[in-house]
């Protein structure tokens, strides 16, 4: 057993443990954090296999962005965060699907690379990747970037529409705090009609509404 194997073993254990805890954790945020551990572990696996570029991409995309967005989403929406019990009736199905997927992938990977060592394969150089992407696979690359652009614009549009006509979409909020009738009437008027709202932001920066949309996007 070389140092290389040992390093792989450690990283693999962290990854596997993280994955297990991700699905068994009863706290959604904890699960998301364990997912981040798992994804970092995968970056470690890539590193051990001398694929440093892929490892860094894994880190920046999955840990730095995807995991953060997961947490962001969990905290922004009213998802059951905290010590609420998190459970699912489809446990059996989940185990079956993931087990099957594991078997299929293992067979495929062993069939393709079985017998070769990491040293033989060698990590791909950035230059090589660039050559491949911009020569052989340039069309799929461009199509993919168009798709991402469309997704980006769609997200912005969605976010804008949500706040754009909030007067109608906003559910009525009733607050009973025993205030004077006039105050109450004023409040109701504000909540029902857009007039007062318009007056409040008149001459003001229309930014906050749009800005918040962007922030959410």
């Amino acid at each position: 057993m070389t140092g290389h194997d040992l390093a792989f073993l450690v990283v693999a254990l962290v990854t596997g443990g993280g994955a297990l805890l991700t699905v068994t954790s009863k706290n959604l945020v904890h699960a998301a954090l364990f997912l981040a551990v798992t994804l970092s572990g995968i970056a470690g696996v890539f590193l051990v296999l001398a694929a440093d570029f892929v490892a860094l991409v894994q880190l920046v995309v999955y840990v730095g962005a995807v995991a953060v967005l997961f947490l962001f989403g969990l905290m922004l929406t009213r998802a059951p965060i905290g010590r609420e019990a998190l459970d699912n009736q489809n446990r059996g199905l989940g185990i079956a699907v993931s087990g099957g997927l594991f078997v299929v992938l293992s067979v495929l990977v062993i069939g393709a690379f079985g017998g070769t060592t990491a040293a033989e394969v060698g990590g791909p150089r950035v230059g090589d990747i660039g050559m491949v992407i911009f020569n052989t696979w340039v069309l799929p690359f461009e199509v993919l970037s168009m798709l991402l652009l469309a997704a980006l614009i769609g997200a912005i549009l969605l976010a804008r529409r949500e706040t754009g006509d909030s007067g109608e979409e906003q559910a009525p909020t009733r607050i009973d705090m025993g205030t004077a009738p006039s105050m109450e009437a004023e409040r109701m008027a504000r909540l029902e009609g857009g007039d007062d709202q318009a007056e409040l932001t008149a001459g003001g920066d229309p930014g906050p509404a749009a800005g918040r949309g962007e922030g959410r996007a």
Binding site: T77, A171, T173, R174, I175, D176, M177
Partner: peptide, 13 residues
């Protein structure tokens, strides 16, 4: 203060 929030849709906060 009694604050009651009614809303529909999963994203109503």
């Amino acid at each position: 203060l009694l604050i009651e929030v009614t809303g529909d849709g999963d994203f109503q906060t």
